[in-house]
């Protein structure tokens, strides 16, 4: 199959999902299947018995090299709802500072015969590294690597849009804030452009816009008011406070003046525009409380969709990985 190198690693020879590392290069049909599968899982959360047996007998290890309560709990819940056995491992960087390399840590884990690793790591490419070099037979789900990718977060945002808006090709979508450091924004851009969105806008000051961003097929704006004009979807990004210390921004208050989403600014967008945020939100820095809690906000809906997306991706990657193992065994 003729796929970009970023996608080859993630798919089986027949194009099934095998690892979920990044949206970059994945075909539209696959993203649509993820959305459809996740959509069917949304109802599972509303049932009396919340479990389906798709991962029964499988072991999922949550490997978090970087702290995260939210993402980890939604992955844990998703795995449990798929009936998998779940092991949570918080490997803070002190283990590696004791001299053990990531490679050694993973070699130890491999001996546990797990079926899936959900990986979060502070370095871009960590999930690729694990999928490529360490455990090619274990399905890897990227739960965030450095500033590179966070594909399940991006897909849950797509599911939110999918459930609340018309088809992607008619939409104008604005992503606002610290694009440079955002692994979510990169995958959102790949997902939106792949799903057919014609008008994706990245809005922020030059210090927080990545180099050559336009080459990703988006338009960049420095002026929030201009960028929000007539949009259907507004995705606000979280601003890490340490950006002020490292000279990306002068102060949180100046940032809020220029890029904070207020009710007044929301009026620039279409009247039925939806507002999203990956959370946790900084009220009064990225977004006015009235907007975050207002009726156009879907911030809380996103959390529930997150579980459904993770269930979809985990079940699809597991079946792809099983298929790949069978192909490899047959070839031997």
């Amino acid at each position: 199959m003729n796929l970009p190198p970023s996608a080859q690693l993630q798919l089986t020879e027949t194009g099934e999902l095998r690892h979920f590392l990044s949206i970059d290069g994945l075909p539209k049909t696959l993203l649509e299947r993820i959305l459809d599968t996740a959509n069917s899982f949304v109802v599972v959360g509303n049932q009396e018995v919340k479990k389906v047996p798709l991962l029964r007998g499988k072991t999922v290890v949550n490997l978090f090299f970087e702290n995260s309560t939210r993402t980890r709990s939604t992955f844990e819940l998703a795995a449990q709802r798929l009936s998998a056995d779940v092991l949570n491992l918080d490997i803070n960087t002190s283990a590696t500072s004791k001299g053990e390399s990531l490679l050694d840590t993973l070699r130890n884990l491999r001996a546990m015969h797990s079926d899936m690793f959900v990986v979060r790591h502070s370095q871009s490419g960590a999930a690729h590294f694990i999928a490529q070099q360490v455990t090619p037979n274990v399905a890897i789900i990227n739960a965030g690597d450095g500033r590179h990718a966070h594909p399940t977060q991006a897909m849950l945002d797509m599911l939110t849009i999918y459930r609340h808006k018309a088809s992607f090709d008619q939409l104008k979508v604005a992503i606002v804030g610290d694009i440079l450091h955002s692994r979510v924004a990169r995958d959102q851009v790949h997902a939106l452009t792949t799903l057919g969105c014609q008008d994706v806008r990245l809005i922020g000051p030059n210090t927080l816009l990545p180099t050559a961003a336009e080459e990703l097929g988006v338009t960049t704006y420095n002026d929030l008011d201009k960028g929000l004009e007539d949009v259907d979807v507004i995705i606000m990004l979280r601003l890490q406070t340490e950006r002020m210390d490292s000279a990306f921004l002068p102060s949180a208050s100046e940032y809020y003046q220029a890029y904070g989403l207020t009710r007044q600014r929301l009026c620039k967008a279409k009247s039925d525009a939806i507002v999203m945020h990956p959370g946790p939100i900084n009220r009064g820095i990225e977004i006015e409380s009235e907007v975050a809690d207002g009726e156009q906000s879907l911030i809380l809906n996103q959390v529930g969709y997150g579980i459904a997306i993770r269930m979809a991706v985990m079940s699809m990657a597991m079946s792809g990985q099983m298929q790949q193992r069978q192909i490899m065994e047959a070839n031997q």
């Binding site: 970023s6 970059d24 871009s124 490419g125 690597d145 450095g146 500033r147 590179h148 990718a149 692994r183 990169r186 990545p210 180099t211 050559a212 961003a213 080459e215 990703l216």
Partner: peptide, 15 residues
Amino acid sequence: HDGILATQLGLNGIP
């Protein structure tokens, strides 16, 4: 190198 690929890979670029 600080270019589109660094943006895509999420690696710090050297301009």
